[in-house]
Nucleic acid binder design. Structure first.
Lengths: 141, 141
DNA sequence: TCAATTAGTTATCAAGGGTAACTAAAAAAG
DNA sequence: CTTTTTTAGTTACCCTTGATAACTAATTGA
C-alpha cells in the first residue's frame, strides 16, 4: 500500500512544474518567488535571515538575490552592519508580487475547488506537524 | 496568509533530504528507489512503462536503470520485442527493497505519530484529487 | 515493400542546491 | 586596546535531477 510520503512526493513535480510555468510569464521560477514572498512579508531582510527561513545554505540565497537584482525586483538598502546586505522589494518587485500573487491564488483555488473546506483545513494543518516531527528527527543526531 | 501550495512546497526539501539520508545507507537516492518500487509492484517492466508512470521523459529512466544495473539491483530479461528492455529486480534488489521498505515505513510512522487516523486519511485522500485537477489544467492547453 | 511509429540511447543544457575556501567586518577575550 | 573568534556574504566547483533534440534499431501498418 502506498504511503503518505510517496503520495506527497509524487505530487511535487506536477505542482512545481505548473507553478514554474505560471511564474515563467514573469521571468522567475519558484525559488526566486520564495525570496520575493519573504521580503513582502518580513520587510527588508538580510541573506542570512532568508536562508534560515527556507533552511538552505547561504550561497543558494546569494544566487537567488543576484538574479532578482538583475531583474530589478529587489534592491539593497543601507545597513549599520557593513557586513550584511539589506534587501527589499523595489516598486517593480512589489508590482510583480501582486500580479503573481493573484495568479497563484487563482490556481490554488482551481486545484482545491472540489475539496470541502474542513478537509482542506485538516490537510493544511498536517504539514507543519510533519515539519515539526522532521525537525525532532534531526535533533536526535 | 499562507496557501496550501506554499505549505506543501516548503515541506518538500526537508522530506526528500531525510529520505535521501536514509536511502544513502543503501547507496541509492529517492529517484532510484522509485524505479525499484515500481518493479516490485508491477513485476518486470519496460523503460517506457516506468517513464509513463512517473510522468518523466525516457532518458531520465534510462539513467536510473543504468545506475541500478551497475549496483546489481535490477537486471534485464529477455523479451519478444527486441526494441524493448525488460527490467526486473534481482535477488539482491529484492532484499534491498525489503530493508528500505522497512526503514521508510518506520520513518513515516514516526513522522505521522501525533496525527489522528481520520485526519491522516483525509490528507492522504486530497493528494490524488489535486493531481487530477492538475491534469485537467493541462488538458485545457 | 516502404513509410510511419515505437523503444531506447547519447549528448547537451538548465535549474537547483551543497561544500570548501576565502574576504571583510564586527564582537568577544585578553 | 590589541588579538582572536565569529558572522555575513561571495566565489569556485561539484552533484542530482530532469528536459530536449537527434539518432539507431526494431516493429507496425498502408
Amino acid at each position: 500500500m502506498e504511503g503518505y510520503l510517496q503520495r506527497f512526493l509524487s505530487l511535487y513535480r506536477p505542482i512545481i512544474t505548473k507553478l514554474n510555468e505560471l511564474l515563467g510569464h514573469y521571468e522567475i521560477t519558484y525559488s526566486l518567488w520564495q525570496v520575493m514572498y519573504y521580503l513582502k512579508h518580513h520587510g527588508a531582510s538580510t541573506l542570512v535571515e532568508i536562508a534560515a527561513h527556507y533552511e538552505v545554505e547561504k550561497p543558494t540565497i546569494t544566487r537567488r538575490v543576484q538574479k532578482l537584482m538583475e531583474h530589478g525586483f529587489v534592491e539593497q538598502i543601507s545597513s549599520t552592519d557593513k557586513r550584511e546586505k539589506n534587501i527589499q522589494l523595489t516598486e517593480l518587485g512589489e508590482s510583480i508580487y501582486r500580479d503573481v500573487r493573484k495568479d497563484i491564488t487563482a490556481l490554488e483555488f482551481r486545484l482545491m475547488e472540489d475539496i470541502p473546506e474542513e478537509e482542506r483545513h485538516i490537510a493544511y494543518g498536517i504539514f507543519p506537524k510533519v515539519h515539526e516531527n522532521l525537525k525532532k528527527e534531526k535533533e536526535q543526531h
